[in-house]
Amino acid sequence: MWEAAGAKLAERWAAVSVPALVFWLAGLLAWTRSRGGFHALKVPADWLAKQSVPAQITIVLIALLGVSASGVIIERLTTPVLRLLEGWYWPCFLKPLRHKLVERRKTKVEERLRRYQELSPAVAAGTASPEERTEHGSLTMLQRRSPSPAPDMPTRIGNTLRAAETRPVDKYGLDVVSVWPHLWLLLPDTARKEIATARVSLDASVAACIWGVLFVLFAPLTLWAVPAGLGVAVVGVVAWVPSRAEVYADLLEAGFDLYRRTLYEQLRWPTPCNPREERAQGQELTRYLVRGSDSTTPAWGSDR
């Protein structure tokens, strides 16, 4: 038991503290650069060497605790920062920009949909050129990243995650926010592990953006901290976070696609017989989970 607990604790510490340790080591590098090179480390190293062994151990532990604490703080900030990257909770003065970005994305989606409809007959008939089939496939993937009925978030990240939340409603009548906690408890360990890993990866990419922005604070020590920090933040926002959000969104939707029947069975709710009935049943099930019901239907038999 202690070995398992120790392994989990070490794994957790590494996940939180390693990025923080990299950040502070980079900050130390910036400090040494501002002092003329690595020989600047000789003074604090000599001072530490003169301390007693207990004092040295205490100083090292305090430094490690400080690194871990900064990692925990950044970890707590990942969710609100992700909300900002999605397009939620923008300040009031950015509302005009948010509205403009949403309208721009709606226009792009409409153009893609028209082009998709133009290419679909030829692709279905097998007469499309290789270039047209490639374009049709790309448009299909782009449509998957757009929430229904139209984009309502100003960023690519926000629309990707919103699409994963709205698609189960469109297909099955199941509201993700209301149903997901119940479905999560019914997922097999393999599925939960994959989804949890994807979420951790998404949060780690958001944390990298935060660390990059914070690294700019070392600019008084060395000016290269500005391009380095902003470069990491920009790459994170443009590439890392969107790509990992897509993986997480796909797995979230797959959870509903594959295991929603288990939800019906565990709640003793009648299993839908066709897609149209399933959408209506899903809406009823969502309302039941949110508000409860005093209706006499559906009837739960003793064998269910």
Rank of each mutant, 00 (worst) to 15 (best):
M1Q: 15
W2E: 05
A7R: 13
L9I: 04
E11Y: 06
R12W: 05
W13V: 13
A14Q: 01
V18G: 05
V22W: 08
F23C: 01
F23M: 08
W24I: 03
L25P: 08
L29G: 07
A30V: 07
A30W: 01
W31E: 02
R35E: 09
F38Y: 07
A40P: 02
A40N: 01
A45G: 09
A49D: 09
A49H: 07
K50W: 13
Q51L: 13
V53F: 01
Q56H: 00
I57Y: 02
L61W: 10
L64A: 09
L64S: 08
L65A: 15
S68H: 15
G71V: 13
I74T: 10
I74P: 02
E75C: 00
R76T: 12
L82N: 00
L82T: 00
Y89P: 09
Y89V: 09
W90S: 08
F93Y: 14
L94S: 12
L97V: 12
H99R: 15
V102N: 06
E103R: 13
R115S: 13
R115Y: 08
P121Y: 03
A125N: 11
E132C: 09
G137I: 11
L142A: 09
S148H: 14
P151F: 01
P151Q: 05
P151S: 05
N159R: 10
E165C: 09
P168Q: 06
Y172V: 02
G173I: 02
L174I: 13
L174S: 08
V176A: 07
S178F: 05
I195Q: 09
A196C: 05
A198V: 10
R199I: 15
D203C: 08
D203K: 15
A204D: 15
S205W: 02
S205L: 01
V206L: 11
V206K: 01
A207V: 10
L214W: 06
F215M: 06
P220Q: 05
L221V: 09
A225I: 03
A228R: 13
A233K: 12
A233H: 12
V235S: 08
G236S: 07
V237R: 11
V238K: 13
W240V: 14
V241G: 01
E246D: 02
D250K: 10
E253H: 14
G255N: 11
R260C: 04
T262Q: 00
T262M: 00
Y264E: 11
P270L: 05
P275Q: 13
P275K: 03
R276H: 08
R276F: 04
E277N: 06
G282C: 14
Y288D: 00
G292F: 05
S295R: 07
T296S: 08
T296F: 04
P298Q: 06
P298I: 00
A299T: 07
S302H: 13
D303C: 12
D303S: 06
